[in-house]
């Protein structure tokens, strides 16, 4: 039990749990709305915590294994905590031929991610590839949270990360 977390962070728990119940209420406690429910929960927590999934399963009268199956089927759901900045690099055909992989390598190297690791230890960044963002004219594309970064190069990607880091560091 985290005994030393700062007070506002601790009160988050109950507020978020209330959100989960609001979401379930809005969707009529109906398991046919499961995907929408999971999306809303992920919007709140930035990932799908296991205990919350178990709660959703219990509340919807379904088995946790079924909810887990749905949550792991869709790439949009994450069962691991994600960073504050979610870096999505497009590796669809157009971006791939315009050299998206060197961009990915540069980003991962800059963030010091070990092979298989998605999120930085300070929880600031997560990195994943997606199959197509529908912006092939801007290839190769990186999207960070809601911001689109077109025609990326390894150098531009590192610069962009530096900017975010500088912004975050000064905010602290």
């Amino acid at each position: 039990m985290p005994a030393t977390a700062p007070l506002p962070a601790r009160q988050e728990g109950l507020r978020k749990f209330q959100k989960v119940n609001d979401v379930l209420e809005r969707y009529g406690w109906d398991a046919t709305n499961l995907i929408a429910i999971l999306q809303q929960i992920q919007a709140e927590y930035r990932y799908l915590p296991q205990d919350i999934l178990t709660y959703v399963a219990t509340a919807l009268g379904r088995s946790p294994s079924e909810i887990f199956g749905v949550a792991t089927f869709y790439a949009q759901f994450s069962l691991e905590p994600k960073g504050k900045y979610e870096v999505r690099l497009c590796d669809g055909t157009a971006c791939h031929v315009r050299r998206s992989i060197p961009v990915l390598q540069a980003i991962r190297e800059k963030l010091g991610l070990a092979p298989g690791e998605q999120t930085t230890k300070d929880m600031r960044f997560s990195v994943e590839t997606v199959s197509c963002l529908g912006a092939c004219g801007l290839a190769p594309v990186v999207v960070i949270n809601e911001t689109v970064y077109p025609q990326m190069t390894p150098e531009a990607a590192v610069k962009m990360l530096n900017e975010i880091n500088a912004r975050e560091d000064s905010a602290q």
């Binding site: 294994s65 887990f68 792991t72």
Partner: peptide, 20 residues
């Protein structure tokens, strides 16, 4: 009626597994 096992994952990574 137990539903202990289900498919998890997708594509080449599908496995049969209990929850989590």
């Amino acid at each position: 009626g137990m539903h202990v096992l289900d498919f998890a994952g997708r594509g080449a990574n599908v496995t049969v597994s209990p929850a989590y």
